[in-house]
């Protein structure tokens, strides 16, 4: 309980970290709350813990800058500070629920997020007392493939120990085409597991062809492999192992969608490893004035005068000589003037 109190009353910086001390050697990535570094952020402010419901307490100022794996820039604002902003600018960090949700990322990974509300903690504390202080926080991942899960009829499970302040976790489930359900819970020192919340159920996709075939639409193995190769643009004559490796490569190649949403970003920009550089261009401005109703040509082409009889022309100026006769004829045709600038440009 002590640890939760810390979470609620301090501003904490969340960063990504790899957890190596996980059960059953599953690799995981989590966003972990680093309580120590948080102290720096609030050093100069007097922050009083607020004891109201969760939703009104913690507000993350979601960083608007670019985020990269390994340097997440999520911040939690000190509790109770800038409550004014809450409705207008920030989403609540939590909603006062006790809930865990899991989502499939790909055939091997699922993503989970959760929150446990204060009532739940209070109830547990009442029920279990001080035993909770030494309890480990765990994710328990049940393989429930082919069963309607009732809490006991799982095929197998494994646990991942998580730190107390994490609220999301990427779980490597490893095996494609299986169904999973996840509990967030507490593992007591006597081995008893207390479920805090149970997730929805998901099924990961297969990462290769199904082993199930259809009597009515039977296809022999060799033909299917051939067809599979053709379907993914690899041609015939590949073994199933080749194909599996190739399709993974294919999915990671650059023919995925990209243009749509990225209207402002490149689809095929080459890596610009440009060294020091310099560009120089020259332009020539030819301008002048005459009677507003005169007819003017520049290099033989008629031009439009401004109201007051002025004109200004701008030319990109290539190397070489440009002869630019400017001719004005009065509106009655009686008067004529020609001025001819000659410009010579040379680039060395």
């Amino acid at each position: 309980m002590k640890k939760t109190a810390v979470k609620k009353s301090k501003s904490t910086k969340i960063s990504k970290a790899k957890s190596k001390s996980v059960a059953k050697t599953k690799k995981t990535i989590s966003r972990r709350t680093n309580v120590k570094s948080a102290a720096k952020l609030v050093k100069n402010k007097v922050v009083k813990p607020v004891h109201s419901s969760v939703e009104t307490e913690v507000f993350p100022a979601l960083a608007e800058g670019k985020q990269q794996v390994g340097e997440s820039k999520f911040f939690r604002r000190p509790a109770g500070v800038q409550v004014q902003e809450r409705d207008t600018y920030e989403l609540p960090a939590e909603y006062g629920d006790t809930r865990i949700v899991i989502q499939v990322r790909d055939p091997y990974w699922i993503y989970s997020y959760w929150e446990i509300n204060a009532d739940k903690w209070a109830g547990l504390r009442q029920e279990f007392g001080d035993v909770l202080n030494s309890a480990k926080r765990m994710l328990r991942i049940y393989d429930i493939t082919g069963v309607i899960f009732n809490g006991n009829n799982f095929n197998s499970f494994f646990d991942i120990e998580i730190n107390d302040c994490a609220s999301t976790w990427y779980i490597n489930v490893g095996t494609p085409g299986r169904s999973y359900c996840v509990d967030i819970g507490l593992l007591l020192s006597d081995g008893k597991f207390i479920t805090l919340a149970r997730s929805n159920c998901v099924t990961t996709p297969l990462d290769g062809p199904s082993s199930i075939t259809d009597e009515e639409w039977m296809v022999v193995e060799d033909d299917f492999n051939k067809l599979y190769g053709l379907s993914v643009g690899l041609g015939v004559g590949l073994s199933s192992a080749d194909i599996k490796r190739k399709i993974t490569q294919r999915l990671q190649s650059d023919i995925s969608s990209g243009a749509i949403s990225s209207f402002g970003s490149p689809v095929k920009k080459m890596d610009q490893k440009r060294g020091f550089w310099l560009v120089v261009n020259t332009e020539l401005i030819v301008y002048g004035a005459t009677e507003p109703d005169a007819k003017v040509t520049v290099q033989g082409r008629p031009i439009q005068l401004n109201k007051e009889g002025t004109f200004s022309l701008r030319f990109a100026l290539p190397d070489g000589e440009q002869t630019i006769p400017v001719k004005a004829v009065s509106s009655d045709g009686g008067e004529k003037r020609v001025i001819t600038p000659i410009v010579n440009k040379k680039t060395i």
């Binding site: 966003r31 794996v69 999520f74 989502q103 997020y113 990671q252």
Partner: peptide, 29 residues
């Protein structure tokens, strides 16, 4: 033929990772 197609997208790597990774996973909650 009647089959159940597999979960898939045309995004990079073929599944949901483009829309579910460190930079954007916070939105789903």
């Amino acid at each position: 033929q009647v089959i159940t197609p597999s979960m898939s997208t045309w995004g990079y790597k073929g599944y949901n990772e483009v829309w579910l990774e460190g930079s954007n996973d916070w939105i789903y909650r």
